[in-house]
Design a protein around this nucleic acid. Structure first.
Length: 203
DNA sequence: CTTCGTACTGGCTTACATCA
DNA sequence: GTGATGTAAGCCAGTACGAA
């Protein structure tokens, strides 16, 4: 693998945002010099009328692109003579094809992210309604505790047993949540679980 | 008029050669 | 051997332009 391929491998498969890593200077939106209109200079291929490649030529090029998105000069020359094209045309075709491929990938990636996002929103709604149900349950449990406390206090006020019994009851009823705060921390304070911070983006 | 495909421009990197 | 410099080739983003 040469250095250039190495570099491309470092870059995401989509080449996304890529060139900015290689050429940060260019990534800054520097005003570009406007290109002069060219009606066919010395090195111009458009000296002759711009023409569409035949279906057969495109098929062969697509086949080669499918195997390898990069074009080595030897392969370029071979393809060019095989298809009766200028090597420059082959190079340009590959360059444009890479651009189309990259754009297509970006669109695909966007739609994947969109559906993932939709899924997370759905899950968030489900969790929120679960929190509401659990809060209702907790409220009922607290009322029940209060009733029992009043009953016990009424029979033997200031008895050391009463407070111990209450503690035990609290532990029994709330033990699975590890206490009120812990149980509902997430619901009120968004996602603070390590590694889940990104969820806040959707809040 | 819009979209798509082909070709070009300019900025940039990399590899290689040459020279002091 | 090594660093500086020049050059060719290739890549990309952006753009022009002809054809459908």
């Amino acid at each position: 693998m040469n250095k250039q391929e190495d570099q491309m491998a470092l870059i995401s498969p989509l080449y996304s945002g890529v060139y900015s890593q290689i050429a940060p200077q260019q990534a800054e939106s520097k005003p570009r010099r406007r290109r002069k209109k060219n009606k066919g200079g010395e090195n111009s291929l458009s000296g002759f009328r711009k023409r569409k490649l035949t279906q057969e030529q495109v098929d062969v090029l697509e086949l080669n692109f499918g195997n390898e998105h990069k074009l080595e000069s030897e392969k370029k020359e071979r393809l060019a003579s095989e298809l009766g094209l200028d090597p420059r045309q082959v190079a340009v075709w590959f360059q444009n094809r890479r651009t189309r491929w990259k754009n297509k990938k970006i669109v695909e990636e966007l739609s994947k992210l969109q559906s993932a996002h939709d899924g997370f929103v759905l899950e968030k709604c489900r969790l929120e309604s679960e929190v509401i149900k659990l809060k209702e349950k907790l409220c009922e449990a607290e009322k029940e505790i209060q009733r029992l406390r009043e009953r016990v206090d009424g029979g033997a006020s200031n008895s050391p047993i009463s407070s111990l019994t209450m503690e035990a009851m609290d532990t029994h009823l709330l033990g699975e949540f590890g206490g009120y705060e812990e149980a509902f921390y997430m619901a009120d304070n968004s996602y603070n679980i390590p590694g889940m911070e990104w969820m806040n983006l959707f809040m």
